[in-house]
C-alpha cells in the first residue's frame, strides 16, 4: 500500500467519512439514485448546526476528564429567544440581534466558568444547573412565544448556492480556522496539553485557569451563535429548540474521533460525524423501517463505526 494512502487510512476520522458515504450510497441504491443531491444539501444544512456546537463541545471535552458543557441547549434557546424578540422581524435589527446573541454567549460562558472556578463545582453539575437558570430566563423573557426571524436573515440561513447552503460554507471555513487554532497556536496547543496532563501543563508554564476559562466561553459563544442561526433557519425560536443538541454535540465529537478522555481533538471528523448521523436517520426513514428497528440499527451502526476507527488507532 502506498505510504500516502496508508497515512490517510490511519486518520481516525477517515472511517467516519467512509461510513457517511456508504450510508448515502445505500440510500441512493434504495431510491435508484433519486434525490441524491438534495439529500446531501439537506444533510449539509442540518449538519451545520451540529458542527457549530460540536466545535465548542470538542474544545471543552479536550480539556480532560470531567469537562463537558451541558448548558448548550439552554444557551441556544436563550440566545435565539432574546435575539428574535429584539429583532422583532426588522431587517435593520439583524446586526443588533447577532451582537446580542454573542453577548448572551459571553455572559453564559463567564457565568459557567464562575461556577466552576470560584465555587469549585464540577463542570458537569455547574453547566447542568446553570442550564436550568438559562432555560427559565428564556421562558420568563418570552413565555414560549414564537417570533419569526427577519426575512433577510431567514433568507441567508436557508439559502444554498448550487446545493451548498451558505451557512454550511461559512461553518466549513470556521472549522478550518478552529483546526488551525488547535494545531498552530499557543492556545490550541495549551488546550491539548491541559487535557493530556493538567499538572504537567501547569508545570510547563501554561496558565491552566485562563485556558479553561477561554474554552468555556468559546463553547458558550458558539452555542449562542447556533441558537441565533437555528432560530432563523427554523422559522423562530422555540423553548425546546436546543434539546436535540445536547447528546448530539457529544455524539458528534466522539464519533468524529476526539478522545472522550481529553487531550486529543479532531476537527475534520466533526463534519463527517454530523453528516453521518443525519444520513443514518434519513436512510432508515427512507427504508421505511419501524421505529424500534431504526433505533437498534442506529445504535449498531454507530458502534460499528467507532470500532472501525478505534481498531485503526490501536495498531499504531
Amino acid at each position: 500500500m502506498p505510504a500516502a494512502v496508508k497515512q490517510i487510512l490511519e486518520r481516525p476520522w477517515i472511517w467516519v467519512y467512509i461510513a457517511a458515504i456508504a450510508v448515502w450510497g445505500a440510500t441512493m441504491v434504495f431510491t435508484q439514485g433519486q434525490g441524491g443531491g438534495d439529500l446531501l444539501t439537506a444533510a449539509l444544512a442540518f449538519a451545520t448546526f451540529s458542527v457549530i456546537v460540536a466545535l465548542g463541545q470538542m474544545m471543552v471535552i479536550t480539556l480532560g476528564p470531567g469537562n463537558v458543557d451541558l448548558s448548550i441547549p439552554a444557551t441556544m434557546t436563550l440566545a435565539g429567544t432574546v435575539a428574535t424578540k429584539v429583532m422583532d422581524t426588522q431587517d435593520s435589527m439583524i446586526l443588533v440581534g447577532f451582537l446580542l446573541a454573542l453577548a448572551v454567549g459571553l455572559g453564559v460562558g463567564l457565568f459557567n466558568y464562575g461556577l466552576i472556578r470560584l465555587l469549585q463545582i464540577p463542570p458537569i453539575i455547574a453547566t447542568l444547573s446553570s442550564s436550568f437558570l438559562f432555560q427559565s430566563a428564556a421562558i420568563w423573557y418570552n413565555r414560549g412565544l414564537r417570533i419569526k426571524p427577519p426575512p433577510q436573515l431567514a433568507d441567508i440561513a436557508t439559502r444554498d448556492v448550487l446545493g451548498l447552503p451558505l451557512l454550511a460554507a461559512a461553518v466549513i471555513l470556521l472549522a478550518v480556522i478552529v483546526h488551525v487554532v488547535l494545531h498552530r497556536t499557543t492556545y490550541g496547543r495549551a488546550v491539548t496539553a491541559v487535557g493530556q496532563n493538567t499538572r504537567a501543563a501547569a508545570l510547563a508554564g501554561i496558565n491552566v485557569d485562563r485556558v479553561r476559562f477561554q474554552t468555556y466561553v468559546f463553547c458558550a459563544v458558539l452555542a449562542a451563535v447556533n441558537g441565533f442561526f437555528f432560530s432563523a433557519f427554523s422559522g423562530g425560536a422555540a423553548l425546546n429548540m436546543g434539546q436535540a443538541y445536547l447528546l448530539n454535540s457529544i455524539a458528534v465529537v466522539v464519533i468524529g474521533g476526539t478522545s472522550v478522555a481529553g487531550g486529543f481533538a479532531n476537527v475534520p471528523g466533526l463534519w463527517a460525524a454530523a453528516m453521518f448521523l443525519f444520513l443514518v436517520e434519513a436512510m432508515l426513514n427512507t427504508f421505511g423501517l419501524g421505529a424500534g428497528i431504526r433505533l437498534v440499527l442506529t445504535g449498531l451502526i454507530i458502534v460499528g463505526v467507532i470500532i472501525a476507527a478505534g481498531g485503526q488507532k490501536t495498531e499504531r
Binding site: 431510491t31 433519486q34 441524491g36 444544512a45 434519513a282 426513514n285 421505511g288
Partner: peptide, 24 residues
Amino acid sequence: VGSVHGDWAQDVAQKAVAGILPSL
C-alpha cells in the same frame, strides 16, 4: 410513501422530513 417520527415537535419534524423528502 414515507413515515417519519416528529416527536410532536416542530424542529424534530423539520429535520426528519428534510431527511426523507429527497427520496420521495
